[in-house]
Amino acid sequence: MLKKIAVGTLEFVGRYTIDMVKAIGLMGEFVGDTMKWLSRKPLRMGAAVDQMVEVGANSFPVVFFTAMFTGMVLALQSHTGFKRFGAESMVGTVVGLSMTRELGPVLTALVVTGRAGSAMTAQLGTMRVTEQIDALYTLAANPIKYLVVPRVIAGTLMLPVLTVMADFVGILGGFVVAVMLLGANPVLYMEKTFEFMEYNDMFSGLLKSMVFGFIISVVGCYQGFYTEGGAEGVGTATTKSVVMGFMLIFLANYILTALLFSNGGGGAKF
């Protein structure tokens, strides 16, 4: 009996490990395939444009909304804090730096993961369970090339664009709250916003967002591509895709922040 339990446990651990290694291997293979097809011509720009509209332009409203209110809340909150030691003029600085360095890229990535990454999984998952992906194979068309590459291109290129806009909208939101609600001097606010900001703050944010875009689209496609189990499987895959996307974004965010901001640069400035 005891032996059975012990063996069972060992088997469970072993199987779990094997599954994990397999999943990582599969993912690696998937990323490798994607990179291979990314580098092969011709790229299907038509499909990529469609995806760019989907990931980029169509995500803009929700990114706008998120960034706007984040900027507004940031202004309110930091104002409350700074007022306590008379540094209200720093609100703009905080909003600007927070948006460009951290919140712009990360929030945009999260929003796009929820909106476009999950859509990618659902689309590809549906195609998988209705055998459309198989159909592509039988028509001698590689689904990575036809389905994944355009999405990865769109994700990687559109995230920075969305992030720039989120930065802007967030700063705008903070500005509106600070000037209209908290009575800040508009000129001073803008001056303070950019006084301590450096190119590095924004561009490293954009670089981050590019990586995030790649992660979102690759994870979204991967989860969809290997969907199993019919309509229900599509649902599960979509959930998994969002969860995995979030986790990888946070992980990558930490690593990138450590890499980009650690040695001097903008990091030491504030």
């Binding site: 055998e131 459309q132 198989d134 159909a135 039988t138």
Partner: peptide
């Protein structure tokens, strides 16, 4: 060389 009809047609949506 092949043409294949899938059981569920598998048309591209």
């Amino acid at each position: 060389k092949f043409g294949m009809l899938f059981q569920g047609a598998a048309l591209f949506d």
